[in-house]
Design a protein around this nucleic acid. Structure first.
Ligand SMILES: Nc1ncnc2c1ncn2[C@H]1C[C@H](O)[C@@H](COP(=O)(O)OP(=O)(O)OP(=O)(O)O)O1
Length: 965
DNA sequence: AGTACCC
DNA sequence: CTGGGTACT
């Protein structure tokens, strides 16, 4: 069914995508295998990924420890909140992250168990991950209770062995739309079916061996696996076929439901008039690129379609160990020291078990009254002698005593003990954890080696990072685009004429990718080298191996359980079978096949079983002599065929890909406007300004707080938000493009017409189309505005800080003004009227919980219409807003340096009045004024929300889809 | 060092 | 909210 889509991309014939493993169970037929290798094309659906999500994890751990709790409603308590609860409690309406008071109202019999100490949960969490690792090393942890497992190789094994049935185990995600896309016949259906059987086997074994129940989602990529896992809870599993990706994704109530789109990004896309995933899919890629940068834009779009090439990255020991404690109030040095001592003691025990030593300590604090995300930290190197004999001599106490003054030193950098302070959290973190035996020399050489590899593309082995099949045949960019395309095509094509709007939307995504890539900026020169390298390696393998290499996707690694490397052979015999009592474990099966494989390769006088137990470099050498290219992994314990190597965190961070990714396509902020970031400005201000200790609070007889600033400090505040400039031109985007041609310097696209026509195409809500396919002519209000050249920028951009030298009555009064126009808002700091979306992510299909009856705390399930008017910097927690005296403008308050705000709040909370005097000049007040009425500045383009706001696009790029190429 | 993101 | 983690800038 060769078809072409309106994105200039032709999709390959299905035959080329299929991989008929089932025809080739006879391993001895080398010729067939060679042909197979040559003809192998890997579809975009080649992987099989399972997402495991443990049911109410903490509660399960507690119920395992005390089975009597099973029948009772159980809540896990951390301070004031019930972080999670068992399903008995959920019957009563208790939910995750609920206040204890609310939970007790819902369920007076609720049994509460403290879950503040995570030790047991952490332990069980690693038990689970290690258990999964017995099946395959491709296990990625996400939090304590979730694991992604790439079972592609296990699937292939079952295909080779004919060990599967053509059915789904557990639930199969059903189409949600009348006009469903047609099934893909690349073979993914069988792979997902097998994946569902593997998931069922693993879940059964997990319950048997560890007593843990969980949910699983089976899909061809991580996002879909995760999303589909939540459709049936608890203790159930769901599979989704690639062609139903749209059905799944469009059934989500909000873009916030997509992992990777967090609260900040959600607000930003909301500010673009995007409120559903359908909206996001249809958003103009160029507008998104302008707003978020091309990489983030593309990631957003891909995720919105359920497209995700990010690999499963094998977990390794944690990079940091931290302990924290939160509390209502810590305001004395002695109290702080006591708390820090407790945290350190706990950390020392943990680091002792870990076996590594920290080279860095970090202390973080949270001051009262500031938003909950807010933290300040200081870190320092740990002197080498502190931990020198730590693990050998067991001198934990000594090291602990030495650590305390170091951390208290950090504390003094954060808090001046003599001044008022009010902390609500302290966190101590050990970082830069290194193995004890790795002295400076070892470290130097290991770093040196890594750097050398990074810098020399010719020495880089492309296949090293290609842990999954779908990477292998991507010989060029075009092919990759086809893969992207293919993934969506099935889900979009209602019929072959491809008349649906979603096809158009989809073609835009492709178009967008193509525009960027055509310009030669998407892939670096390194990537070209990488592609050549890959071809070479494949060619070599065809010549050098006898075909088994390519044909059998052997995971050629020693099996390990726990953290201890077991001899592979004995493990084969001793491992209890996690899959089925009557047969061997998959892991054991691997070893058998590996030995069998080795026997075929090696001459008779070499004992394969002995080779299995040799150190990795020796194995590598022996096999190299017999034409098998092996790859040694960093840990030095696994080795595997190049095509099946495990992607570890360190590898993922060192790949050519990530090098390419880290190099920005363009740096808009550098090319236009100020080079100084907001953060940097604040820093500079704090360094040079007069918020010195002499300016600190003086008790005053007044009954309320007054803020008296010198003129200088007024300017300070102004400069902190001063880069928010005013846009009064009709079309911000158009002007942006004119003024920032460098944004698109490499794309050679006439952007303005594209924007217009793009919007014209995308005029219908996806959701509406799904239900009725009528209403074709509806144009969203937001889109109308776009077409009319109306301003779509967040209203906050249009505010400007104005200083006055006398007390202004408008300090608080502005918000009464009816800000009816699209311009000139004063942000209102009202409590968010959280508006429930009538379903929530993990139970949007499941009916057990009735989301409409509860108001979860601000999360991906809630929307706050007012929030889009408030930038991240400016938002204050409700707590602060309530406590803040009336005559302090929250707007201004929000702009103050952290330590100043912290001190003010400390006084507010203690009820001590305070006046700030800066010595000279009249008291100055700062107010926020309507742009139109107060600003005489000429209109300029708003730069703050450009794609260049690089500081604000952090995580989307590193979550799903970041390392996807 | 701070700020995104995940649970 | 709590008590952890990750990554990027
Ligand atoms: N900010 C947070 N967001 C989400 N989870 C958090 C947060 N802070 C702590 N947690 C903990 C509490 C929960 O036990 C756990 C959430 O895991 P999650 O998979 O969402 O639910 P759960 O495993 O408790 O129940 P279930 O998956 O059955 O609904 O992580």
């Amino acid at each position: 069914m060769a078809h072409s889509l309106p994105g200039h991309i032709e999709v390959d014939d299905d035959e080329e995508w299929s991989r008929p493993f089932e025809q080739e169970s006879n391993k001895k037929n080398d010729q067939v295998q060679r042909n197979h290798v040559k003809n192998a094309k890997v579809s975009a659906h080649d992987r099989t990924v399972i997402h495991f999500d443990v049911d109410c994890f903490y509660a399960q751990v507690e119920m395992l420890r005390n089975p009597e709790l099973r029948l009772k409603p159980l809540g896990i308590q951390q301070k004031n909140i019930v972080v999670t609860c068992n399903y008995v409690a959920r019957e009563y309406g208790v939910t995750k992250l609920m206040y204890v008071s609310d939970a007790m109202k819902k369920c007076p019999q609720l049994v509460l168990v403290s879950g503040e100490d995570l030790t047991n949960y952490r332990h069980t969490s690693y038990q689970i991950s290690e258990f999964l690792k017995k099946y395959t090393p491709h296990v990625e942890r996400l939090g304590f209770d979730e694991n992604f497992v790439d079972v592609s190789e296990l699937v292939k094994w079952r295909q080779i062995d004919g060990d599967f049935k053509p059915t789904f185990y557990g639930h199969e995600f059903k189409k949600q739309r009348e006009m469903a896309a047609s099934k893909c016949d690349c073979g993914c259906e069988q792979r997902i079916q097998i994946g569902s059987q593997i998931a069922a086997d693993i879940r059964e074994a997990l319950q048997k061996e560890l007593g843990i129940t969980c949910c699983a989602g089976i899909a061809h990529n991580k996002v879909l696996a995760k999303l589909v896992a939540g459709t049936h809870k608890p203790n159930q599993q769901t599979s989704i076929l690639p062609h139903l990706a749209q059905d799944l994704v469009l059934s989500l109530p909000s873009p916030r439901c997509i992992p990777g789109i967090g609260s900040k990004m959600h607000k930003r896309i909301q500010a673009q008039g995007i409120s559903t995933i359908g909206d996001l899919q249809k958003a103009d890629p160029l507008v998104l690129a302008n707003e978020f940068g091309p990489e983030t834009a593309q990631t957003l779009l891909k995720l919105s379609f359920g497209v995700d090439h990010s690999p499963v990255i094998a977990f390794s020991p944690p990079q940091t160990l931290s302990d924290e404690d939160s509390f209502k109030c810590c305001n004395s040095y002695q109290d702080a020291e006591r708390r820090i001592r407790d945290l350190l003691a706990s950390l020392m025990k943990r680091i002792a078990e870990d076996g590594r030593i920290p080279q860095t300590v970090r202390l973080s604090i949270r001051r009262a009254g500031l938003h909950s995300n807010y933290r300040e930290s200081r870190q320092t190197a740990v002197p080498g002698n502190v931990f020198r004999q730590f693990h050998t001599s067991g001198s934990i106490g000594t090291a602990e005593k030495e650590m305390l003054p170091i951390v208290m030193g950090l504390f003094k950098k954060l808090v001046e003990p003599k001044k008022h302070f009010h902390l609500t959290l302290i966190n101590v973190c050990f970082a830069k954890l290194v193995k004890q035996d790795s002295g400076p020399l070892t470290q130097f050489f290991s770093k040196h080696n890594l750097k050398a590899e990074n810098c020399d593309p010719s020495s880089f082995d492309y296949c090293k990072i290609a842990n999954c099949g779908d990477e292998r045949v991507k010989m060029d960019d075009t092919h990759e685009l086809k893969n992207d395309m293919q993934e969506e095509s099935n889900s979009h094509l209602v019929n072959k004429a491809g008349t649906s709007k979603s096809v158009k939307a989809q073609s835009q995504l492709i178009d967008f990718s193509k525009k960027i890539k055509d310009a030669g900026s998407f892939f670096s020169v390194l990537n070209e080298d990488k592609c050549k390298m890959k071809k070479t390696v494949l060619a070599d393998k065809e010549q050098d191996s006898d075909g088994n290499v390519e044909k059998s996707p052997i995971l050629f690694s020693k099996v390990q359980s726990d953290s201890e490397a077991k001899p592979a052979v004995s493990s084969t015999r001793q491992t209890t079978c996690p899959l089925a009592p009557t047969t061997e474990s998959s892991a054991a099966c691997f070893e058998k096949k590996e030995i069998h494989f080795l026997k075929n390769i090696l001459p008779n006088d070499i004992d394969a079983e002995v080779v299995m137990q040799l150190p990795c470099p020796i194995q590598k050498e022996i096999l190299a002599q017999h034409g098998i290219l092996m790859e040694e992994l960093p840990e030095g314990r696994h080795f595997s065929l190049i095509s099946n190597s495990v992607l570890t965190r360190s590898q993922a961070n060192q790949t050519v890909f990530s090098t390419a990714r880290k190099r920005p396509l363009f740096s808009p902020r550098k090319s236009v406007g100020s080079n100084v970031s907001n953060t940097e400005k604040v820093k500079r201000i704090r360094e040079r300004e007069s918020f010195s200790s002499e300016d600190m609070p003086v008790k005053d007889s007044g009954t309320h707080i007054m803020l008296n600033f010198s003129e200088k400090n007024v300017r300070t505040v102004e400069s902190m938000v001063g880069n928010v400039e005013i846009q009064t031109e009709p079309s911000a985007l158009k002007e942006n493009l004119k003024m920032n041609p460098s944004l698109f310097q490499s794309t050679e696209v006439n952007v303005v017409p594209d924007i217009v026509t793009g919007n014209t195409f995308m005029s219908k809500s996806q959701g509406k189309m799904l239900e009725t396919d009528t209403d074709q002519n509806v144009i969203h209000d937001a889109e109308k505005e776009k077409l009319q050249g109306r301003d779509l920028r967040p209203p906050a951009n249009q505010t400007q800080i104005q200083s006055t030298l006398k007390r202004s009555e408008t300090l608080l009064g502005e918000e009464t003004e009816p800000s009816s126009t699209a311009h000139s808002h004063i942000p209102k700091y009202e409590p968010n009227n959280s508006q429930d979306i009538h379903t929530c992510q993990k139970s949007f299909v499941n009916k057990e919980m009735d989301p409409s009856q509860k108001s979860p705390p601000a999360s991906r399930f809630t929307e706050s219409p007012n929030c889009s008017k408030i930038t991240g910097k400016m938002s204050l927690p409700q707590f602060t807003l309530k406590k803040l005296p009336k005559d302090i403008n929250p707007e201004v308050f929000a702009q103050l340096p952290n330590d100043i705000r912290g001190e003010i709040m400390a006084h507010v909370l203690m009820g001590t009045p305070v006046t700030y005097t800066t010595g000279v000049g009249e008291p100055a007040f700062v107010s926020v004024k309507d742009t139109k009425t107060t600003s005489s500045k000429p209109p300029t383009v708003c730069k703050r929300h450009n794609a260049k706001s690089s500081s604000s696009q952090k995580s989307l790029l590193n979550y799903f889809s970041s390392k996807d190429k």
